[in-house]
Computed example of a mutant assay.
Amino acid sequence: MTSHQSHGERLLGINGVELCAETFGDPAGPAIVLVAGSAASMLWWDADLCEQLATRGRFVVRYDHRDTGRSTCYPPGQPAYSFTDLTLDVLGIQDALGIERAHVVCQSMFGGIGLILGVDHPDRVASLTFVSSSTGADDLPSPSSDLAMPAEPDLSDAAAVVEYVVVGARAYAGGSPYFDEAAIRALAERDVARARSYASTLVNHYAIEFDGPARGGFGDIAAPTLVVHGDHDPLLPLPHGEALRDTIPGAELLVLKGAGHDLPRAVWDDFVSALVRHTEGGRP
């Protein structure tokens, strides 16, 4: 097996639930744990992107949150967990894979997981990266007035659910010239077919309690931090990323030109290069 191939999906028993995880690359390399955004399974961290990082010497981990993909699901509208539980899931995955300290990359709403890790569990975090995320401050811009989301689909109609995901992804791309509808449709079809309960995926992350860190806020993060933000992001416009950079001590900002609230393939070279630089150094 070459270093950049996947080691296959596996179900891990963690914190009383099952979490599906997949790894890429050499376990002796610096570990990068990819935390997807809300309602997103591991598939939204594209396997080709994971392999690009693995070929640069990184041990890459992607996983399904609770209520996504093959991980444990709860009835729609009844998630029995909090942000802290989801954060402890990341640490449980690190424990299961023998990773003492990880470079954690968090997307969108689940930047909150990175916040809790960085503030309450600094010994487990080698660095943090926030992608398309925010401090949540009240004075930051609202979502673009052009961000029109589709009506909820008939959940019994898989084709309608796929179309809903595609239309939503197009809206979140914010008019990006890099939006690839065929690729997103193929991803959505795999995601819907693979999920234990896509009905739960669509709603449960928006119903959980954000309990936040116990020991402080973004200004108390000591881990080296990279902020990555698209200049076309319609959900969290670029000032959200700038605010994260300004709030976290020593943080750096990478602006992805032409990207919306996602990581289109056209910006992967810039993202991978920045993340490799940010995660230099071997496993402690």
Score class of each variant (00 low, 15 high):
263 L>P: 01
228 V>S: 04
5 Q>L: 11
181 E>R: 13
159 A>K: 08
48 D>Q: 12
54 A>I: 01
258 G>E: 11
124 R>L: 00
1 M>A: 12
238 L>C: 13
32 I>N: 08
191 D>W: 13
207 A>Y: 04
184 I>R: 01
82 S>Q: 07
17 V>C: 14
234 P>R: 07
54 A>M: 00
161 V>D: 15
264 P>A: 04
164 Y>S: 07
249 P>K: 00
175 G>C: 07
78 Q>C: 10
121 H>V: 04
4 H>A: 06
90 V>A: 01
20 C>T: 14
196 R>V: 10
210 F>Q: 12
250 G>Y: 13
68 T>S: 08
221 I>N: 02
187 L>Y: 09
221 I>H: 08
40 A>F: 11
237 P>W: 11
193 A>G: 01
100 E>G: 09
150 P>W: 12
103 H>G: 15
67 D>M: 05
65 H>A: 02
18 E>S: 15
96 A>V: 05
3 S>M: 10
135 T>K: 03
207 A>D: 06
51 E>I: 13
10 R>N: 07
81 Y>M: 03
181 E>V: 08
245 R>S: 05
237 P>R: 09
245 R>E: 06
170 R>V: 05
47 A>I: 04
262 D>M: 14
277 R>S: 13
130 F>T: 03
126 A>Q: 13
112 G>V: 03
269 D>R: 07
71 S>G: 06
22 E>Y: 15
109 M>H: 09
67 D>A: 14
274 A>K: 00
60 V>A: 15
37 G>I: 03
30 P>G: 12
37 G>D: 01
173 A>N: 08
276 V>L: 15
11 L>W: 10
220 D>L: 02
13 G>K: 10
255 V>F: 10
244 L>Y: 06
205 H>L: 04
18 E>W: 14
19 L>D: 04
80 A>G: 11
246 D>I: 10
218 F>R: 09
153 P>V: 02
6 S>Y: 01
129 T>S: 05
175 G>W: 14
33 V>N: 04
235 L>P: 07
270 D>K: 00
147 L>F: 11
34 L>Y: 04
191 D>Y: 15
41 S>D: 04
75 P>T: 07
117 L>G: 00
11 L>D: 05
